[in-house]
Structure formats: structure tokens, C-alpha cells
Amino acid sequence: MKKLFLTSALAVLTIMSCSKKEEATQESANQPESNVMLEEKPTEAPAATPAAAALSPEEQGKQLVEGTDCLSCHKVDAKLVGPAYQDVAAKYTDADIDKLATKIIDGGKGVWGDIPMTPHAGLSPDNAKLMVKYILSLKK
């Protein structure tokens, strides 16, 4: 019972922390588009700038990961709420890039446990693929 309560509380806190960041970003952006997750807007810019074009896809992906809420649930080398990026890299290959990019955008549940990954609907498929390439580059 205690384990179920703690898991439920952790899931609620995770969802609340992600939604609060999204709300704060929406308020500061003052854009009329309500169906777009505005927290992802800053992550779109690095791929479009000339400086970002000089970066490798993995480096661009790392910048995108650091610019979103991903690090509130994931760490590179240790499980937090979600799996460590190195564990994800060990499980998947480059053939799974499209599948994982879709999972980042749509969210997911059940592969790494009962706590769902929140969707990131405002993230473009190209940027999600860059993020996946970065994560897969972390293979041990």
C-alpha cells in the first residue's frame, strides 16, 4: 500500500512539475496559439541558427534536451523518474530513431515502468530525432 501511494504521489508531482513549467512559459510568451506547447519554442531556435548548423546532430540534440523539461525526469547515467539515457541507448539502435522520436512527441507508458512519460506535442519530429540521436550516442 505504501509503495502504491509513493508511486502515485511521484506521478502526480511529475505531471504537476511539467505542467507548471508549460504554464509559466505560455504566460511569458504571450502568443495566441493555445494548442502549441510553448515550452518547446526555445528548442526550435538552435537548429535554425548558423552556429547550430556547425554542430553535429548529437550536439544539437544535447542542446535540445537541455532546453526542455527532459532533465527533470531523466539523467544521463542514473535512473530518476524515467530511465537513464545510457540505459535507453543500450536498449535501442539507430533503427529505432523514428519510433523513439514519436514516443517523445506522443508520450508513452509501460516500457520502463508504470509512470508515464509526458507528451511533448510542440516538438517537431526533426528536433525529436536529433534528441534521440544524442541519447543513442551515450552508449557505454
Rank of each mutant, 00 (worst) to 15 (best):
L130C: 09
K139T: 12
D96A: 01
V76R: 01
P50N: 14
L10T: 14
I105Q: 00
L38S: 03
P125W: 00
D69Y: 07
C70P: 06
A54M: 15
E23N: 08
I135E: 00
K129L: 15
S56C: 08
E22V: 15
F5S: 04
N30V: 07
M117E: 11
S34V: 00
A47Y: 01
N30E: 06
P83Y: 05
H120D: 01
T25L: 09
V36H: 00
P116T: 04
G108R: 04
K3T: 15
T102E: 10
A128S: 04
G110Q: 05
N127C: 13
E22H: 11
D126P: 05
D106T: 08
Y134D: 11
A9R: 12
K103V: 03
N127H: 10
P125V: 05
S28L: 15
T14M: 11
S8I: 15
F5N: 05
F5R: 08
V132M: 03
V81H: 12
L55P: 08
C73I: 14
T118M: 07
E27L: 10
D94E: 08
K41S: 09
S28T: 12
D96W: 04
L71I: 08
G82P: 01
L10P: 02
E39I: 05
A52G: 14
P46D: 07
L64K: 13
K75V: 12
S124M: 05
D96K: 13
N35L: 08
I104A: 05
D98W: 12
E44Q: 13
G82T: 07
K99Y: 09
T93V: 03
T25C: 11
N30A: 09
P116W: 14
A47F: 00
I15F: 15
L80I: 03
M1R: 02
L80Y: 13
V12T: 13
G113W: 05
D114S: 13
